[in-house]
């Protein structure tokens, strides 16, 4: 895999060591007031950005930390945090 991910604890490592955890969507919503649709949106719907997105990764074959990083989906490369966070 050409992708490398920078773990906040272990540093830059081969992408094989990590598990993808989805796009950053914010904390779990409160159950009160949730509807079918809003819950489904939170769990399953993604923007599918062509470009830079913030996403969760788990260092499975390493220290076992969940963290977010930024990746350009068009090049499949990890990138610096963009100036203006979307």
């Amino acid at each position: 895999m050409a992708l490398t991910i920078t773990c906040p604890i272990c540093g830059k490592r081969n992408g094989y060591e990590f598990r993808y955890g989805g796009v950053e969507k914010g904390p779990r919503p409160n159950e009160e007031g949730l509807t079918h649709t809003s819950w489904c949106d939170y769990v399953h719907m993604n923007e599918c950005v062509a470009g830079i997105q913030q996403e969760w990764w788990f260092h499975r074959d390493g220290c076992g930390v969940w963290f977010t990083t930024y990746r350009d989906t068009t090049t499949n490369l990890e990138v610096e945090k963009p100036e203006v966070d979307r």
Partner: peptide, 12 residues
């Protein structure tokens, strides 16, 4: 399992 616990508590 460790991954599962930590994923679902990652914001807390």
């Amino acid at each position: 399992t460790v991954e599962w616990f930590r994923y679902h508590t990652r914001y807390d």
